[in-house]
Computed example of a mutant assay.
Amino acid sequence: MKIRAEALLFDNDGTLVSSLDSVNRCWTRWAGEYGLTADDFARIRLHGRTAAEIAADLLPADIVPQAVARIELLEVEDVADGGVRLLPGTRAFLDSLPADRWAVVTSATRRLAEARLDAVGILPKTLIAADDVTRGKPDPEPYLLAARALGVDPARCVVFEDAPAGLEAGRAAGMTTVALATTHRASELDADLVVPDLSALSALVTGGEVEITGRG
């Protein structure tokens, strides 16, 4: 399958970098600090959602801002302890793209996203974070904002995601979707194309267009 687009929009955690161990470590500690039981925490889906949404599901409204600041601090500190790493194919794929043809669109806060990206040497020209939107994934707002920032019609964008909520956001934005089976089984991912990770893809830039194809 070949996909042609003018802009490529990447989720970060689980798509470009692996932060799952860090997330589990930090959120487990956070839950203990706020007196949450294992049952409380088990019912909450962490991946692909903002910290503010998760905290609001678990805690009284008056302590949510404090709790969100606390988990952000824990996760940023964990980055310094080696909490993230590049996923296979990330470096080569991004290096093949012009800087003005791609963006990172994440449910993390800008501070956390920049810490994780900086730790692995990724410096996107355009970054859309939780701080920039009023509604996070699966709402299409984050991806529509990224398309606007790049000056590209949403229909000419491709979204790269590992989580169902992010893929739903991409579809709702009218974009082509590519799922990476890095954190979910391929059978759980509804996308135009499903691959193991970015190492399964190559990109060829011709003029103002990017052609994406599978390797091998």
Rank of each mutant, 00 (worst) to 15 (best):
Val68Asp: 07
Val133His: 13
Gly208Arg: 09
Pro65Ile: 02
Glu72Trp: 01
Ala56Gly: 14
Ser187Glu: 14
Leu167Tyr: 11
Cys157Ile: 15
Asp78Gln: 08
Ala99Arg: 13
Ala69Asp: 15
Glu53Leu: 09
Trp30Cys: 02
Tyr143Asp: 11
Ala113Arg: 02
Leu150Arg: 01
Ala67Ser: 15
Ala119Val: 02
Thr109Met: 03
Gly89Tyr: 06
Val159Gly: 08
Ala191Ile: 11
Leu74Glu: 00
Gly166Arg: 04
Asp62His: 10
Gly48Pro: 08
Asn12His: 00
Arg29Thr: 14
Ala80Cys: 04
Ala186Thr: 06
Val64Leu: 09
Pro196Trp: 13
Asp39Tyr: 00
Arg4Asn: 11
Ala115Trp: 00
Gly208Asn: 12
Leu46Asp: 07
Leu16Asp: 10
Asp139Lys: 11
Gly216Trp: 01
Glu77Met: 05
Leu127Val: 12
Thr213Ile: 00
Leu123Tyr: 13
Leu46Val: 08
Leu58Gly: 07
Leu144Ser: 10
Arg45Gly: 03
Leu189Glu: 13
Ala103Lys: 08
Val23Phe: 00
Gly207Lys: 08
Glu33Arg: 07
Glu141Phe: 06
Pro124Gln: 11
Thr50Asn: 10
Leu97Trp: 13
Gly170His: 10
Leu16His: 13
Leu204Trp: 09
Val178Cys: 08
Val152Trp: 00
Leu73Thr: 15
Pro65Leu: 02
Arg25Cys: 03
Leu145Asp: 02
Arg85Cys: 06
Val120Phe: 00
Ser187Asn: 04
Leu59Gln: 05
Arg135Pro: 05
Thr50Ile: 05
Ser107Asn: 12
Ala165Glu: 11
Ala56Pro: 07
Asp11Lys: 01
Leu198Cys: 03
Gly83Tyr: 03
Ser22Val: 00
Thr28Ser: 15
Ala147Tyr: 11
Ala55Glu: 10
Val194Ile: 13
Leu58Trp: 05
Ala52Ile: 02
Leu167Thr: 06
Glu161Met: 04
Leu189Cys: 15
Leu74Asp: 02
Ala92Leu: 04
Val210Thr: 12
Ala113Gln: 07
Glu188Ala: 09
Ala181His: 13
Ala5Ser: 14
Arg101Thr: 12
Gly48Gln: 04
Ser19Gln: 10
Val104Ile: 04
Leu16Ile: 03
Ser22Asp: 06
Val64Thr: 09
Ala55Val: 09
Thr28Asn: 15
Leu193Ala: 10
Ala5Trp: 01
Asp153Pro: 12
Ala163Asp: 14
His47Ala: 13
Asp190Trp: 04
Thr106Gly: 11
Gly216Leu: 12
Lys2Ala: 07
Asp197Ala: 14
Asp39Gln: 12
Asp190Ser: 07
Pro140Gly: 12
Val120Arg: 02
Ala51Gln: 10
Pro88Asn: 02
Glu6Met: 06
Asp153Phe: 01
Tyr34Trp: 15
Val210Ser: 06
Leu189Asn: 12
Thr106Glu: 04
